[in-house]
């Protein structure tokens, strides 16, 4: 399938040049919503019992909220520094999968839709040699040259003419005959 037909195209980007000075984690808070009794929240409950504290210790820049609510399916809501809010249903998901999704969310920079990169690099200052003009990379010596100029007017790589070829052959033959004598 040709992905460029439905993938939005764009360039690599980072909020406030994140990473040039200091890399800051873009995920700022996560809310885990679940039911204390319903079966669909089993995986979420297991995650909260077994993995939540470790996850919180590893990601101390993320604020974690746990919100029980009756008879509703479990949900992850992730909020990012750029104001994005990502809602994810975790209905019947096992705890391992929830951990994987959370790890993915903690590495993202927002509610990022996949984009087709037009280039694998991006710069706002594309030129380091200034705009082109007809004199770019021209030899300044040509300014004072007088035309017609023998050197400058010379044809590059002129093909050998038939006369030159014949003369060359004749010269070779004469040389070989001289050697024999």
């Amino acid at each position: 399938m040709n992905h460029s037909q439905f993938l939005v195209s764009g360039f690599l980007r980072a909020p406030i040049y994140n990473g040039i000075g200091r890399q800051i984690n873009q995920l700022q808070r996560v809310t885990l919503k679940f039911c204390k009794s319903h079966g669909s929240s089993q995986g979420m409950r297991n995650f909260i019992e077994n993995n939540l504290v470790d996850f919180a210790k590893q990601n101390d820049s993320v604020v974690l909220y746990v919100k029980p609510r009756r008879h509703r399916s479990p949900v992850i809501v992730a909020e990012y520094l750029n104001g994005d809010r990502k809602w994810m249903s975790c209905h019947n998901r096992p705890s391992e999968e929830i951990l994987k999704w959370l790890s993915l969310l903690s590495l993202q920079a927002g509610d990022t839709e996949p984009i087709r990169y037009r280039k694998h690099w991006h710069t706002d200052v594309p030129s380091i040699q200034g705009p082109w003009n007809p004199f770019t990379h021209k030899n300044p010596g040509h300014i004072i040259a007088e035309y017609p100029h023998e050197g400058l007017g010379r044809v590059f790589k002129a093909p050998q003419s038939a006369t030159e070829k014949l003369l060359k052959i004749a010269k070779k033959r004469n040389e070989s005959e001289n050697k024999k004598e």
Binding site: R22, I24, Q28, D60, S61, V63
Partner: peptide, 8 residues
């Protein structure tokens, strides 16, 4: 607290 940790 998380704000401080985010800025390392």
């Amino acid at each position: 607290y998380a704000f401080g940790k985010r800025l390392k």
